[in-house]
Each structure stands twice: as structure tokens, then as C-alpha cells.
């Protein structure tokens, strides 16, 4: 890979790994969601995310030019090579926490993908346009679920409050620009994440008010996921489950 292409590869891994890790976590609900209708909806969302993964990691593999495929990147990399947000790799918790995480992520994805449609990289712009349609539906669904549970019973409100308190320190990582982000902004591939933050915060505040929940104070952020510097101890366990088949039977297809 050309050194000039490295930031783009890194950028694409971040998009793809977010979709992959969230997709896998969401798929863990398959068969065990609280009711049948939500079970199917969660499985649909997981499949959307895996579809997005194929687009991002497929392009990443092309940019890398090392003969690896999207599948190779998904199933044969180890923890330290993953570039997903920490928020997406932590265990699902209860149904409420899963929905809160989905909402916090969707509220970021919608303005982010909207702006990526203007990318100077036409492939990035095309992938973003395709993913945005799904992200808009996901945000519609997750925000209404967060409102329904937050503004539901005393028990559901308490659980959503706990979910928000748990996830909040992980949300700061989303908007911390680093060298890769600045390189992408300079090249016109993507806007800076710090420019997306006010849009995200506006959506989050609007929904939390309707959900009878309070925006947590403090901006301490757990970081290290999207840079690959330090993942939580949970990602390795998740990958062990997700990758076991390819690791045990290399090259297996069906």
C-alpha cells in the first residue's frame, strides 16, 4: 500500500469495523429478544450493519491492495487491528441499553453519512448514500424506542437512565479528531468529527427530553477503540465467538 493511501485505509477500517462490531452485537439478540417483533427487527438491523460492513471493508481491502478480502479483514484480524468505537463492543446489557446504544450511534451516523455523500472520494460518497437510507430508519426506530422506554414505567425509565449513564463516557470517543481525521478532512474525503458533534448533540438532547431523561454531566471520554490503542477486554471474547469458524477451519465456505 502506498503511504499516501494509509489514512484512507485506516478511515475505511473505522467505518467498516463500527458496522461489523455493532452488527455482531445486535445479532446476539437473535432468538432471545423480549418479544418476537423486536427479535425480527433486531435481526434486520444486524443484517443491515453486516451489509454495510461488506461495502466499507470491501473498499478497504481494495485500497490496501494486499490481496485480502472483506472477509479476511473481518475474520482474520485480531483485537489490536480493530478500529471500532468502544461503545459498540461492550456487551449488550439489557434490551434498554442495547436500544440506547443504537440510538446514540444512529444519531451520529445520520449527520455523518449525510455529509459523507459529498466526499471527494466517489466510492465513499456512494457507500454513504446507500448506508444513509438504512441509518435513517434505524434512527427513527431507536429514537422512538428510547422515548417509549424512557417515558414508560418507573422501572423502564430507571433502566434507560442507567443505560445512558453507562454509555455516556464511551460516547465522547466518537468526536475526537486525530491525524487520520485531519488527513481525510484535508483531502475532502470526510468532514472533521468535531464538526458533527453539535448535530449529534442536538438530536440526542431533543430525544432525551421527550424520553424524560437527563443528559449526563461531564465530558470524560473512554478512548482507544477507533485508534486501536486500547480496546476493552470484551472485544477479544466477541471476536473469539465471531471468528471461531474461520480460525478453526481456515478458508471454509458454504
Amino acid at each position: 500500500m502506498d503511504a499516501a493511501q494509509k489514512p484512507l485505509f485506516e478511515f475505511l477500517l473505522r467505518q467498516g469495523d463500527n458496522a461489523l462490531v455493532l452488527g455482531h452485537r445486535t445479532s446476539e439478540w437473535c432468538g432471545v429478544a423480549p418479544i418476537l417483533e423486536e427479535d425480527i427487527a433486531l435481526a434486520n438491523m444486524a443484517l443491515d450493519q453486516i451489509g454495510q460492513t461488506q461495502l466499507w471493508l470491501g473498499y478497504a481491502a481494495e485500497v490496501e491492495g494486499a490481496g485480502r478480502s472483506a472477509d479476511d479483514l473481518a475474520f482474520l484480524r485480531d483485537v489490536y487491528d480493530f478500529r471500532n468505537l468502544l461503545m459498540l463492543e461492550v456487551p449488550n446489557g439489557d434490551f434498554g441499553r442495547t436500544q440506547m446504544r443504537q440510538f446514540l450511534y444512529d444519531a451520529f451516523q445520520v449527520p455523518w453519512l449525510t455529509q459523507l455523500q459529498n466526499s471527494t472520494d466517489t466510492r465513499v460518497a456512494e457507500i454513504a448514500a446507500k448506508c444513509l437510507k438504512e441509518a435513517l430508519y434505524h434512527l427513527d426506530r431507536s429514537s422512538h424506542t428510547v422515548i417509549a422506554l424512557g417515558d414508560g414505567t418507573a422501572e423502564s425509565n430507571k433502566r434507560m437512565d442507567e443505560a445512558l449513564a453507562f454509555l455516556w463516557p464511551y460516547s465522547g470517543e466518537v468526536f475526537v479528531d486525530d491525524e487520520t481525521d485531519h488527513a481525510m478532512a484535508t483531502a475532502g474525503v470526510a468532514p472533521l468529527l468535531s464538526e458533527i458533534k453539535p448535530l449529534w448533540l442536538e438530536t440526542v438532547q431533543t430525544v432525551l427530553v421527550q424520553a424524560c431523561l437527563t443528559l449526563p454531566e461531564g465530558d470524560y471520554a473512554q478512548k482507544g477503540g477507533r485508534t486501536g490503542f486500547r480496546h476493552t477486554e470484551h472485544l477479544g471474547h466477541m471476536l473469539a465467538v465471531m471468528q471461531t469458524l474461520q480460525r478453526s477451519y481456515p478458508g471454509a465456505t458454504w
Binding site: 418479544i35 418476537l36 417483533e37 423486536e38 425480527i40 427487527a41 434486520n44 430508519y137 427513527d140 426506530r141 422512538h144 417509549a148
Partner: peptide, 20 residues
């Protein structure tokens, strides 16, 4: 048919259950 808390929720569930 399906279960849902209200009409809007029912539309969303119908989208996921019946228009996949």
C-alpha cells in the same frame, strides 16, 4: 397480525416483520 404498544409502533413492526 402482530403486537405493538401503539399505532406508530405497529407500523414499524409491520415494516420489519412483513416487508423484509
Amino acid at each position: 397480525s402482530l403486537h405493538a404498544a401503539d399505532a406508530e409502533h405497529a407500523i414499524r413492526n409491520a415494516r420489519d416483520v412483513y416487508t423484509r
